[in-house]
Amino acid sequence: MTHTTRVSLEPAWILHQHPYRDSSLLLEVFSQEYGRVGLIARGARAARSRWQSQLQILRPLALSWNLRGELGTLTGAEPRGRVVMFPGRQVLCACYLNELLLRLITRLDPHPELFSAYEQAVDALADNEEQALRLFEKRLLQALGYGLLLDHEYDNGQPVEEQGLYEYHLERGPVRREQANPDGLFLQGSSLLSLHRDELQDVRSGREVKQLMRAALGLYLGARPLRTREVLRQLSSLSRNAPADMATLSPNSPAG
């Protein structure tokens, strides 16, 4: 016999939602203590649903549900804290975070430390987008058990030096090199160390770390491309001669 879990007002975010049956929604939720959960919100698409304006992505929520088997049933939803309006660009970056979570973590695998990393990243998007995204990617890899070695060479244990040049071997770590070649993944020691210290201030380390993260995540994402990346690409080709805000989205878009 399956046991029913009742969860009450758990801090959570909606990562994505799909229409379900006639008037319901299937919510993909990321919660503090239970990790990813799939919840059915019955009647949420009906004209007079009490949940209609409540159940949205990028809103801090407190959700209650009953879970029996794989999908739960939403029993309550309340706002948690102030509603922040995200400008268009941050919505796309946050959707990128959501897509990474949906693709890389499985349902009902608790990740409380990743939950707080997600909240920090969403908060920090407005101030320093690149840094917010890269640090979340780093935490995500750690949570999955694939944390990157950043401050030591993997073969001889030598500490990474600011001035050195390193080739990064995925799933192993950095190794010092005299010069770069076009086939490898090369970074300055200073880039590795700034990621290690969680501070990505300068442009060069931002670019190098982004390449490293993209390659590292690529190992686990597999061949299927990220949809948010494709949408960012389309926006960039649309806005080739658009003003600054859109033009900066891509091709050097923060989400890759």
Partner: peptide, 19 residues
């Protein structure tokens, strides 16, 4: 619509109009 996605859509449409 005044949803998160509707607002983001409006943002990009207004950028095109501004351009």
């Amino acid at each position: 619509n005044p949803t998160v996605e509707g607002e983001a859509t409006a943002h990009f449409v207004s950028e095109i109009a501004r351009a």
